[in-house]
Design a protein around this nucleic acid. Structure first.
Lengths: 125, 125
DNA sequence: ACGATACTGATATGTCAATCTCATTAAAGA
DNA sequence: TCTTTAATGAGATTGACATATCAGTATCGT
């Protein structure tokens, strides 16, 4: 546990990648992108920084079924995701749907929901 | 690859578990349940049988974000799932929602969708 | 500029689901 | 019943991902 917290170019590079990110990214994608800014960057630092950023509440984990965890900025509002079956990129969706509550069985309490669309993205159609 | 196919009590036990299954089950859950019918049943046989049943089209894989794959009978119609955050059981939902297509961005083509609700089930509320 | 120490990078290690190996068992046609 | 060989069970192995280790580096308050 660190009481102090230092600003390093590694963490800044990772932060920068997440700041410009379109959809949620996997650790190795973040690594590859941040590598352009800090060529010596190790994958362990990516995992460490992601954990720190999560603890700080800046970043949130997004799980897509059958895939390893991805990460996105947590300042984005409520939204859902689209997985392209061809290029395997995940896109953010802006809107949500009505009537989710109608799905909940009697006696159950809903706290959250997620919708994942599958198909082909604009580039892969 | 086997040209022939034999009926064994192991496979029948696994089939029986899936026949009475309420929501999708994980391999180790199927194993634990089928163990009551065939005490010697090995986990490898569960994986092998699940693969066979998938090839035959009897069983389908269901992925819940952040969890390992679960399996359910494929004769169930279109439906979605509810994950209880307390007991981690997955329940089938009967209805679907309208307006999914409105989420799709221009130029994208949708082929499928899934909705996962999170909360507390009847027993855990 | 100095010093304490948080951070990093390379690699070893851990974790866990799923598969493979292989000797043994048992299903089913002859 | 006999024979062929598909299927099984136990344990070893794999593979993907994440964490731990530790010596060396770099930040930042003084």
């Amino acid at each position: 546990m660190s009481l102090e917290r230092r600003t390093t170019k590694q963490k800044e590079a990772i932060r920068a990648v997440l700041a410009t990110q379109e959809g949620p990214l996997m650790p190795d994608e973040i690594h590859a992108m941040a590598l352009k800014a800090v060529p010596s960057l190790g994958i362990a630092t990516v995992y460490r920084s992601l954990k720190t950023l999560q603890d700080e509440g800046m970043v949130r984990c997004v799980e897509i079924p059958g895939q390893s965890p991805r990460y996105e900025r947590s300042d984005k509002g409520h939204h859902h995701h689209f997985l392209c079956q061809k290029c395997h990129t995940v896109f953010d969706l802006e809107k949500c749907v009505e009537g989710i509550k109608k799905l909940v069985p009697p006696g159950f309490r809903i706290t959250d929901h997620e919708i994942i669309l599958h198909g082909l993205c604009k580039s892969c159609v």
